[in-house]
Design a binder for these strands. Structure first.
Length: 499
RNA sequence: GGCGCCUUGGUGUAGUUGGUUAACACGCCGCCCUCUCAAGGCGGAGACCACGAGUUCAAGUCUCGUAGGCGCUACCA
């Protein structure tokens, strides 16, 4: 039987990086096994689901490069009738029953407390949390009350005795006593709305899912779902649960508490490379058998294995106070690593998009100035971390309008008053250099420094700030060569005013 | 409250069937290179392998217990 997996996000917000990793793992598994990768949008919660979320999830998957779904996208809300039909079939077969108990109001805020309190009270009074007066109501009576218009929920009849068990491909053998499982609600009493556990199972059956790969937060509920598969007479798929990705304080990552670091689109918007972020994500909760960490998509597909997935949760190491560490330093490092080592052919399209967005792109970069452009990118990418750096600190290479770093001015220009006269003079010298190359510029600058009785370093550092607005950057003579004779001279002259 | 899962340096991890100076990557510190900053090279700090017992000649690796973290427990998904 061929492998069929799915990624099933609920569109109640942006694409969370944990969800993105689930999507990636599903995708990797499908591609490796030559199976199908499907997408199902779980939009059954009409109040919380939004089209905008769906769009952003789709965009995120596209950015990651895992949007080649093998079949049409399934929207769960459109299958509600099938879910209902399945539930009523179970009622007919006596595997589920109508519960006429009025719905208990529960506020979203303190459900956890509610649950704990209810459990404590139940234990103290010695009541069986599974007892339900409607469980054994006669089918006739049940039907009569339903037809009379009395509202009811549909609950699965969970066996009183026995154990549920399954083999998780990551967490191993899992067991749970039926006594731990309540008769779960399949359909809500208001409008017979299908609930999550029912919907996933019915859809997974319908989509022919063979392997359910998802977050560990679903691990214990899997037993309930297996009960539904069995009641429906369907074969149970294989399950593989993934460890969670936690915040530095070990809490679950959430937008409310941790902000945009958890949103996948943030990485796209802040200049990350899909290849780098994908690579980083893959390493969160999984390691290849060899030591190599930098892997192309093809390598990931080849090396991926569910057996290599860890059981302990991983911490996403970012700082909320240090802007330089706004996200995991390793992700940043990996992005820089890719920026400086990947082929220009792969980098250029991404860079072009970034430059177009900030109005720095010129068509000539792909035609007459292609050579210059590539040389420049090669020179500056060496010390950049994200695509944003090309249009930020690298702006001076592509435009005459760029900002000067105040600290750089103070350090390299204001420190020596003689620069007021020397900089224009240096400009004059450089204008006469022929040909204008890395070597000739260096020779001219050093000669002029000697004549002027200053260290070459003074000119070099001042020039760096004059030409690029920065105090750091590539070897200065290469910068002269890149910026060119006229622009270099002009910038040296105008920088004299800063002195 | 109950049930389940997890626990190796700051972070991500490696540690095959018990015997290693506990390894690698990121981060951090220092040196080299040098016109600055990176990159690169070299070196360093940082883990009594959550804790406590037990088995054993020998335990990060096996057993039990404890603690902590996380998850689930809902007519949310």
């Amino acid at each position: 039987m061929s492998v069929r997996v799915r990624f099933a996000p609920s569109p109640t917000g942006y694409l969370h990086i944990g969800a993105a990793r689930s999507a990636l793992f599903n995708w990797l598994y499908a591609r490796q096994m030559g199976g199908k990768f499907l997408l199902r949008v779980e939009d059954t919660d009409a109040e919380r689901s939004t089209d905008e979320s769906t769009r952003s999830i789709l965009e995120g998957l596209k950015w990651l490069g895992i949007d080649d779904y093998d079949e049409e996208i399934v929207f769960q809300s459109r299958n509600a009738d099938k879910h209902r039909a399945a539930a009523f079939r179970l009622v007919e077969e006596g595997k589920a029953y109508r519960d006429f108990t009025p719905r208990a109001e529960r506020s979203d805020q303190n459900v956890k407390q509610d649950i704990a309190e209810r459990a404590r009270k139940g234990a103290a009074e010695g009541t069986d949390h599974r007892s339900n007066p409607f469980r054994d109501l006669s089918p006739e009576e049940s039907k009569r009350r339903a037809e009379a218009g009395e509202p009811f929920a549909v609950r699965l009849k969970v066996a009183r005795e026995g154990r549920s068990s399954f083999e998780d491909m990551v967490y191993g053998a899992q067991e749970r006593d039926y006594s731990e499982i309540e008769d779960l609600v399949l359909l809500r009493s208001d409008g017979a709305q299908p609930l999550y556990n029912l919907s996933v199972v019915v859809d997974d059956i319908e989509m022919g899912i063979t392997h359910v790969i998802r977050g560990q937060d679903h691990l214990t509920n899997t037993h309930k779902q297996i009960l539904i598969y069995e009641a429906l007479g369907a074969s149970v798929p294989a399950f593989a649960h993934l460890p969670l990705i936690l915040a530095p304080n070990k809490a679950k990552l959430s937008k409310r508490k941790h902000g945009e670091v958890v949103s996948l689109t943030t990485y796209r918007d802040r200049g990350f490379l899909p290849v780098a972020f994908r690579n980083f994500l893959a390493l969160l909760g999984w390691t290849p058998t060899d030591e190599r960490e930098l892997m192309s998509l093809a390598e990931l597909v080849e090396k991926f294995s569910l057996e290599g997935v860890h059981r302990s949760n991983a911490i996403f190491n970012f700082s909320e106070t240090d802007p330089r560490q706004w996200t995991d330093p390793k992700a940043l490092w990996m992005n820089a690593e890719y920026i400086r080592t990947m082929s220009l052919a792969e980098l250029l399209p991404l860079l072009r998009a970034e430059m177009e967005a900030s109005g720095l792109w010129r068509a000539e970069y792909e035609t007459t100035e292609r050579g210059w452009f590539e040389k420049t990118v090669n020179l500056i990418r060496e010390r950049f971390y994200t695509l944003k750096d090309f249009t930020g600190q690298g702006r001076a290479y592509f435009s005459d309008e760029f900002d000067f770093d105040e600290a750089a001015i103070a350090k390299n220009l204001k420190k020596e008053t003689r620069l007021r006269e020397l900089l224009p003079a240096l400009a004059g010298r450089l204008e006469k250099v022929e040909p204008f190359t890395i070597e000739t510029c260096e020779a001219a600058l050093r000669a002029f420094a000697e004549e002027s009785g200053v260290k070459a370093g003074l000119f070099i550092n001042a020039s760096r700030t004059a030409l690029t607005g920065q105090s750091v950057g590539p070897s200065m003579f290469e910068v002269f060569d890149i910026v060119g004779r006229e622009r270099a001279a002009a910038r040296l002259r105008s920088a004299a005013e800063f002195v």
